[in-house]
Design a binder for these strands. Sequence first.
RNA 1: GGGCGUUUAGCUCAGUUGGCUAGAGCGCCACCCUUACAAGGUGGAUGUCCGGGGUUCGAGUCCCUGAACGCUCACCA
Length: 917
Amino acid sequence: MELDSRYDPKSSEVRWQKFWEEKEIYKYDPTSDKKVFSIDTPPPTVSGKLHIGHVFSYTQAEVIARYHRMLGENVMYPFGFDDNGLPTEILTEREKGIKGSDLPREEFNQYCKEVSKEYRGQFKELWQRLGFSCDWSSAYTTISESSQRISQRSFLDLLKKSHVEYKEDPTLWCTKCQTSFAQAEIDDVNKGSVFNYLNFKSEAGEDIPIATTRPELLPGCVAMLIHPDNSKYKQLIGQDAIVPIFNHKVKIIADEKADPEKGTGIVMCCTFGDVTDIEWWREHNLDLRICFTQSGMMNERAGEFEGLYMTKAREAIISKMLDEKIIFKQVDLDAESRIVNTHERCGTPVEYIPTKQWFIKVVENKEALIKQGEKVNWYPSYMFKRYKDWVENLSWDWAISRQRYFGVPIPVWYAPDGTVLTADESQLPVNPLVDKPLDCKGYDPESLIPERDVLDTWATSSITPQLNSRWGEPNEDKKLFPMTMRPQAHDIIRTWAFYTIVKAYYHFDEIPWQDAVISGHVIKKDQKVESQKVEGKAYERKSKISKSKDGDKFSPLKILDEFSSDTVRYWACTGTLGMDIAYDEEEIDSANKLLNKLWNSSRFAIPFIEDFNPNEKMPKLEAIDSWALSRFNNVIKQYHKSYEKYDFFPARNELVKFFWGTFCDNYLELVKDRFWNPEKRGEESAYAAKWTLYSLLLGQLKLFAPYIPHITEELYQALFKDTEGDISIHVSSFPKENDDFEDELSSRAGDLLLDLLTLVRTYKSKNSYSMKLQVDTLTVACSEDVEKALRKVDADVKAITKTANIIYQRECENPFDDKTSELSIEVKMDEDAMYRTELLGKIKPIVSALKKDAGLKAKNPIAKIYIKAEGKILKSLEEEPSSIIGVVKAREVLFNDNAMQYTATEEEGLEVAISVE
RNA sequence: GGGCGUUUAGCUCAGUUGGCUAGAGCGCCACCCUUACAAGGUGGAUGUCCGGGGUUCGAGUCCCUGAACGCUCACCA
């Protein structure tokens, strides 16, 4: 058993990652009857670069996976890639410099496959470097044949159950991507604009003023509306008005939604400028006057402006109306107050166009869907509110057809009379552009029109639990539905979580998973901003990480080059679940201290536990052993209790606190004497220390394992593999809780010992004494009870405080200033040791000066130190040459060598000299 | 404008059901090279727990109210 003096994560981490993969440590066992813990891993879209936020969020789920594996559960931790759909198309168009609409579909899809494959590789590399314990054999992609089959199965099932409908309706439309999209894909963008005040004409030729930001929609104007109580204008209600420039006639009607305070108090309704236009259009049965094409160009209704893109048309129309004095006022709207809905994938402003689309009906089932959401356990619980708010505010059914190419085809055909023909289950996955329905219902197969649209990418990623359990497939695994846990970030509650709940409800009247575990985002730690000072206090501004502004500073691969995986993982488990975290390299780096400490404490333990046989009988423990074990037992309990709520951070904190404070700072110090001086403390005592050390160290490594799997594996393999036998620490089981160690007197003794130890340490520290400086007599003033407990650990106290004699009394004559409610002390230091320290204190500055003369720094080592002294001084210094060597960093000390040139010290009769080399 | 969250040491954050003389890590100061570790150890300093009210024997924690920051939904004529 041996460990290098330093831990080298670079070589260790890769080595163990390979080992885990070869040994298939993370394989899910479908035949096992152990409790299943299944994770509905978010399949990342391959739409762009990875960033630190992915690492943060995914690591939290990964740590939980490892925790449950070590609990002995049958963990299903798959990985998925969401590669179908618009995000991939946009990425491919950008990467390859092509346009999907310009190429034959098959060719374009081929490019998409290539690009997504490349990005999948990047993702996989990252997860492996982070040591993720996914079962790669159960990885899926949303464009694979079986995913397509299950996705189409889902569509057909919903159609059969009438949750899907095909209808013509105003739809959210992107003129750039030329597709419909869903409410969840809307982004709000602040954009400045101009409010144009312009005049319509009444039939009598009077001016009727309105205000609009979108004058290019004038050719699509179908009505003017005035609030029925609008005293200024209500007399116009019922008349007709003439649209300027385009000169068609529209009615002026009353509507309470026309706010008299806004603009001029009169508003035009166009088909369609916004959602209100749609409502008016429906309520008042207005005409449909579409004035632009699906690609955002003005159509023939725009007359001379036909063929211009809408933004250009706006400029041209404004300019013309200014010339003709139709516009009589323009007001700038600043970006703050003017919010435009855009398509989140490309940033193009949303348009509303009536098209025929497939919808999944959700608006009519809001209540039931909220109830389903309620059945899920949300961590943290307030995240349910986000879900609920979203569902309550839904105003559009979920449009699932996309006029795009790289996606799961919608498995239907249309007969000439409009009848919809569906694919048969047995022919899935089907491509209507190539295949024909099995049952043509008497129509001529050649007359059928195939559906060209594909499904929204969310239509497939909303069935990840079904993909994981392989719903309807020959190898379906019913144990995997519902899944145990859905980890995801909070920004996609309205999409992914919502849609997944919708599908599980419509298909099976089930929830898709028991627990939704929601993580936060990683944000930038910005400098204080002067202008944000409020009432004298400068506030930190925190902002999202932006790829364009921050470059690849937050690229995970770059971060992993700089820091080890274990440290990045450790950092990712900082903070409260669901809360955003500031990216801070110093925080990541400080995890190294823990790794180092683990490494070194294990190194310390090796000589004592290497011949230990854990099967031998349990020894009679000393008080301090019971004390440490019972405290550790408590840590185990807290640890599991925290994990029940997915609180990996408090669990980690308790563990670290114990490891550093109790184990390293105190227990290890306490057992040294027992190991090193068995003749004084007894063989049985040494054995009890060994037994306890073994058990504590192993137990702690296991509790650390989910967070920092590499170093714990390295240490487990080096120290415990042979005696424990598990192939990897990650498939071993956690230390058992054991209340037998609870022993009131030992527990009391341990606590008192620490109090007493702190008092002595404080005493030495305040007097600038080294901790190893010997104490002649330690007088402890305390009650009889306390004395009784402390006497159990007498030997430990003596050893750790370097005390020769302890006296217990009820009171001290000259107590030390610091005391506890139960203890006060009086310390009589060892005179000889004090004297020696004094002498050393005089040697040190002179040697430093000599080193400086020789061109060295004070901390540089030297070859020899020579000391000239006699009598008491000589005798005292000769007693502990190692102290001298240590203080001046010399390799050797020599006394009274006459050949040297000595320099005097402050102490009369003491002179020193050095030789450098 | 609605809803949610946050506000605790110089920085990053913990603080369960009210019991706190408010903690940790980093940073800071002093001391200590002690046979695992100086990437260490010991000791120390630093807080109107965002402000203002209230309930209570007792409030960082509960209630009301205000502010700042963030997120989210909505408003978009």
